[in-house]
Nucleic acid binder design. Sequence first.
RNA 1: GCCCCGGUAGCUCAGUGGAUAGAGCACGCCCCUCCUAAGGGCGGGGUCGCAGGUUCGAUUCCUGCCCGGGGCGCCA
Length: 548
Amino acid sequence: MIDVKAELESWIAGGLAAVAPAPAGAAVSLERPKQRQHGDYASNAALQLAKAARRNPRELAQAVIAALPPSPWVAKTEIAGAGFINIFVSPAARQAVLARITAERERFGRGSARAGERVMVEFVSANPTGPLHVGHGRQAALGDAISNLLQWQGADVSREFYYNDAGVQIQNLAISVRARAQEILGEHTTFPEDGYRGEYIREVAQRYLDEVGHDLGDIEVIRHFAVAALRREQDLDLKAFGVAFDHYYLESSLYTSGRVDATVERLTASGHTYTQEGALWLRTTDYGDDKDRVMRKSDGGFTYFVPDVAYHVTKWERGFGTAINVQGSDHHSTVVRVRAGLQAVGLGVPPGYPDYVLHKMVTVMKGGEEVKISKRAGSYVTLRDLLDEVGRDAVRFFLVSRKADSEFTFDIDLARAQTEENPVYYVQYAHARVCSVMRQAGVAPADALAAFADADCALLTSPYEETLLSRLADLPDELAAAARELAPHAVTFYLKELAADFHSYYNAERFLIDDLPRRRARLLLAAAAGQAIRNGLAVLGIVAPEAM
RNA sequence: GCCCCGGUAGCUCAGUGGAUAGAGCACGCCCCUCCUAAGGGCGGGGUCGCAGGUUCGAUUCCUGCCCGGGGCGCCA
């Protein structure tokens, strides 16, 4: 299948090789110029190589162009600015993307940059102490989209959720539930100072009384029940959000399997530990941390740091050469610490392992005011609240529409709006429009590409058609770049632009015209646009409706 | 005090070494006898937080400062 950009890259490389050898580290690239008048692609090769070749960039560019053989994909080249080589492609080159989309269909946009790589993406990892909040929602949307992006580049991705089901917070949960149960039974009790005060605790307590009984003596039984209840609730939230995990890893299993003890032994054997004031410390400052960290407290218990390291050891030992952790930026202090611990265990884990995507907080706005609480959770807005208010597609699209490290304001009114100002509907509507046109052309949307595959693409030469064709050709690069940067927001921007190009085309020209060859060519282009929108939305975990 | 992230059009945000810095919203004007107007067209809008530096070239890289957020626990 012809990839025009790849063809052009090797074409330029051939000209370069004949004129000036590329020095190591030269950042030669073929890019879309910002302005149409600068052509379809621009190469900065002459600018990058001028210094090493000791030649004037424009003169070098002239020499490169002179060395280039004629290409069926190129209509014209010119030198511009400081020494850019601007390439104007032939109509055939622009139209070639349609053959590619027709052949690749739902696979159009896939690449092989991460082929065969085993990647674990860990995200959400909420403690089973309450309903998921909007921050978890951002994490779920990001983590799932990043996983999809990597899969689209050929990676073997495992999505994992780590449950901290062993710490004091769980104990706190159990105590909170017992206190509420006692209240319900009319027993005198004082609610624990640090207890969870959400309404959902009362619900769990009531269910415990109904299903288990009125005996509140065994805190372990209550703990078990409460954790199970909240895990089930989180699972339902995730299911409603359309996010599925391949594996759940329980912190408690790190203790029962002996991995925590084994990790302590390895760290102690490494010689990077010491005892002070009755506690066991790891000298993480040996690995760039700003202070050393306690592993085992003076009371004999472990800090969360040790199971964290033990857990990441399992990622490495389970064969994940790449691990990506999607977490709130409030966890950023653990980054250096976990990496330091992994270096100290001495298993050959790379220094930058794992990768982190840290995201900022989500603020929810409604009616021009910040929403801070939900009635079930009390102190925070839940993911479920958002899903109930605006629906899954809009929530997913919105939550990945900004880069992870910018703070995000979720405007419920905007997300609910079924108007032009809502980008989700804008993109989905473009797809629905494509499908509507197909139906009126007498073709089922799903069969459209096949139905018009033999259309004469050479008839697609209007400015609107050129713009849309070029945009379609960009999808593989856009997805590859988004995967490389772990940045799904780029996909939302691309989709908005693609939808805009289609809407403009739709308004400017008609599809169902009497000129049959032209009609079929336009329908093929529309069908290809529909496929590209569907593929892009699929990466984000959003459905492309056939009608709205 | 130290560490991380952000500061780009009135608002929400892209762009992160290259050619006159982009989009959406808001604002003004215009387009449905026509495939869904949940759409489109045209227009005004910017000292890219501030000051230095590196570079042929800086919104992009480096240093300092200012503003906003987050983190600095034998909590997770």
